[in-house]
C-alpha cells in the first residue's frame, strides 16, 4: 500500500452532465453487466427457436387444417410466433435496467453523479429502446425467413415484397421495443425486480386472454380489444384479426399504456428519496 497522496492536478476540462454524456454513460452501464448480454441472447434464441418449432408444426399439420383455418393463417405473422415468449425476455430486461439500480442501491451513485434524475431515466429508456429495436429487427428478419422456409414446403410462404410484410417485420421490432418499455415503466413504478417482472408478465401474457371475460355490459369487449398485447400485436399482422382495430391504432394504444405508466413512474423517481 503506497502512502496516500492527494495531488491536485490542474482543473481539467469537463463537459458536465449533458444529456449526451449521460447517454454515453448509460450505454456503457447497460453493456457492462453480463446479464444484459445473456438477456439479448435469450431474446434472439427464444424467439427464433420457438418460431422454428411453430412454423415446422404448421407446415407438418397444414394438410389437416380445414378451409377456414387455412384462410385465418397469416404466414408472415406466424413466422414471428416466437415473440410470444420473446416479449417476456425483453420485458424482464426492461424492468431490470431500472430495478437493478435500486436492488443494488447503485442508484445512489447514479443520482449523486447525475442529480437530474429524469435525464438518467430518459437515457436509460433510449438505450433500451435502441437495443430492443435493433436486436428485435434482426431477430424478426431471421425468424421470418426461417418461418417462410417451412411454409414454402406447403406453398403458403410470403416474401418481403408482399403487401404488409415489411410492416409486419418492422412491427415485430417495434413490438419488442414496446414490451421492453412496459417492463421499464413498471420498473420505475415498483422499483422491485420481482414485482415489476411479475406485473409485466401478468399485463402482457396472463391477463390479456382473460380480460375478455369481463361482461360486455361493462365494456369487456372494448377493454379486451385495446388491452396491452391484445392491441399491440396487431402490428405484426398483414390482415387485422380483430374488427375495428388496425396495426397502427393497436400499436398506438399499446404505446399509450406504457407511456402512462412511465410518466407516473418518472414522477415518482423524481419525487422519492433515492
Amino acid at each position: 500500500m503506497s502512502a496516500p497522496v492527494a495531488q491536485r492536478p490542474q482543473q481539467q476540462q469537463a463537459g458536465g452532465v449533458t444529456f449526451v454524456n449521460v447517454l454515453r454513460a448509460e450505454w456503457v452501464k447497460f453493456w457492462s453487466v453480463r446479464s444484459t448480454a445473456w438477456a439479448v441472447l435469450a431474446l434472439v434464441v427464444v424467439t427464433i427457436g420457438i418460431t422454428t418449432l411453430f412454423s415446422w408444426g404448421i407446415s407438418e399439420s397444414y394438410d389437416q387444417l380445414d378451409a377456414s383455418e387455412r384462410s385465418d393463417l397469416d404466414p408472415a405473422n406466424a413466422s414471428l410466433s416466437g415473440l410470444f415468449f420473446g416479449q417476456l425476455v425483453i420485458a424482464v430486461l426492461g424492468a431490470l435496467v431500472v430495478t437493478a439500480e435500486y436492488s443494488t442501491r447503485g442508484v445512489r451513485s447514479t443520482f449523486t453523479a447525475v442529480p437530474r434524475r429524469l435525464n438518467v431515466l430518459a437515457a436509460k429508456a433510449l438505450v433500451l429502446a435502441v437495443v430492443a429495436f435493433v436486436v428485435g429487427l434482426v431477430t424478426c428478419f431471421v425468424a421470418f425467413f426461417i418461418g417462410q422456409l417451412f411454409f414454402a414446403s406447403v406453398d403458403i410462404d410470403v416474401s418481403l415484397g408482399d403487401p404488409g410484410v415489411p410492416r409486419v417485420i418492422i412491427g415485430g421490432a417495434l413490438y419488442v421495443v414496446g414490451c421492453g418499455m412496459f417492463g421499464f415503466a413498471l420498473g420505475t413504478l415498483l422499483r422491485h425486480s420481482a414485482g415489476a417482472i411479475t406485473t409485466a408478465v401478468a399485463l402482457l401474457l396472463v391477463v390479456p386472454p382473460l380480460i375478455g371475460l369481463i361482461p360486455d355490459a361493462l365494456g369487456g369487449e372494448q377493454i379486451s380489444k385495446w388491452f396491452t398485447s391484445n392491441a399491440g400485436t396487431h402490428i405484426m399482422e398483414t390482415v387485422s384479426s380483430t374488427e375495428g382495430i388496425g396495426p397502427w391504432s393497436g400499436y398506438a394504444a399499446f404505446t399509450l399504456q406504457w407511456l402512462v405508466l412511465l410518466v407516473i413512474g418518472a414522477w415518482l423517481v423524481k419525487r422519492r428519496d433515492a
Binding site: Q12, A14, V17, N21, A25, V28, S32, V33, R105, R108
Partner: peptide, 25 residues
C-alpha cells in the same frame, strides 16, 4: 456506503460510467 454499487460491474466499468456521465476525461 461502499456497497452502494452494482456488483456485476468491474471496478473500471463502474468508474468509467461515472466519469462519462459528468464528461470527465
Amino acid at each position: 456506503d461502499a456497497k452502494d454499487v452494482h456488483g456485476g460491474r468491474t471496478a473500471r466499468a463502474h468508474l468509467t460510467v461515472l466519469a462519462l456521465s459528468n464528461g470527465l476525461p
